[in-house]
Nucleic acid binder design. Sequence first.
DNA 1: TTACCGACCAGAAAACGAAAAAGGTCGAAA
DNA 2: TTTCGACCTTTTTCGTTTTCTGGTCGGTAA
Lengths: 190, 190
Amino acid sequence: MEKDEDVKKSILDASRIVFQKWGLNKSTMEDIARETGKGKSTLYYYFKNKEEIFETIAKQEFTAILIKVQSVIKLEKSAKEKLKLYLITMIKEIKNTVSIYPLAKGELKANKHFLNEIQKYLADRQEDIVMEILIEGQKSGELNYLKANDLKKAADVLIGIVRALSLYLFFDVDDDEQIDIAVKFITSGI
Amino acid sequence: MEKDEDVKKSILDASRIVFQKWGLNKSTMEDIARETGKGKSTLYYYFKNKEEIFETIAKQEFTAILIKVQSVIKLEKSAKEKLKLYLITMIKEIKNTVSIYPLAKGELKANKHFLNEIQKYLADRQEDIVMEILIEGQKSGELNYLKANDLKKAADVLIGIVRALSLYLFFDVDDDEQIDIAVKFITSGI
DNA sequence: TTACCGACCAGAAAACGAAAAAGGTCGAAA
DNA sequence: TTTCGACCTTTTTCGTTTTCTGGTCGGTAA
């Protein structure tokens, strides 16, 4: 059905607005219902619960980031340049992503099942992207000093760096130039 | 007086134990007094208040880290190697520093005056260290691609990276090898 | 005078219970 | 099929009381 998806989308859009304004915990289902222009009960016709709404938004936003990263990476040939773009794009996009804030701030109670699920999903997809770059770079000889054994470890570290710098951005700093320089260090060395 | 300093030290030692066990907020002056083997009021004979005790410990620990970093750096000639050692040593030492935990977790109420003071102190001293390395490396030609103008910016970024990775360690990860690899990336490039 | 402590105070934090709000269900109407 | 109001249950909020804790003070012993 066409209509069904439209309503779902309108609920998600409304939720995004509400979450952005209040954060996850302070946003109520009634806030979302009001913003959507429907009754509260109606939300439950389209989503199992509040968590599912948030989960859907988070997955959508993460997926959008990953798609953007992949499209940006395609434009470059060199593995190093690809990695550079991966780092910069990820960090900057994460910074502008609504659903990250509650995640980063630990607004949700820890150990929520779906949270771990999303984090694993994000980590896995990132690992795919980074590993592909590394393997390609190795084949082409550009990164031939990396032993085949260390590729996965290197990928994990890069993903960790993205998390660390994103976290740092949230808590301490708001300066794109710092990120650019940091990424330059990481890709080219000091 | 000799004795006076001894008692102060014993209070600080006891405090370190208590802070390590309970964190700053959950540690009471009576806990510290009990651990010291003196009455609570006595603590106030030696320190103005709880904050001063914590401040003293924090400054001592930070100073110890900075001294260690400087002594380790002396062993290397190359600027790049020095920077590498700076990063690794800072991050690893910070991880093992009692007083950082409350700071990182924001356990203290924000905007405490002395907190900002300590952070500024730490940042300034780090800037001294890093700038010295960078300037030397530039003079020797090792880092001659860095423009004189950019040195301070580069130093700030390196200090920021230390903070970001330390934060990350506290929240997410407990793996020295990851840090080693990350530092290698930063100093040598991918 | 120096080093220490017990008794004490005021304000902060924990505990608590009642009231309000929130998430979620269900039957019925449109 | 889609929507909603009434309703139930659980969680959060909030005002109040009680306990705890940082900090002061007067006194005491060496």
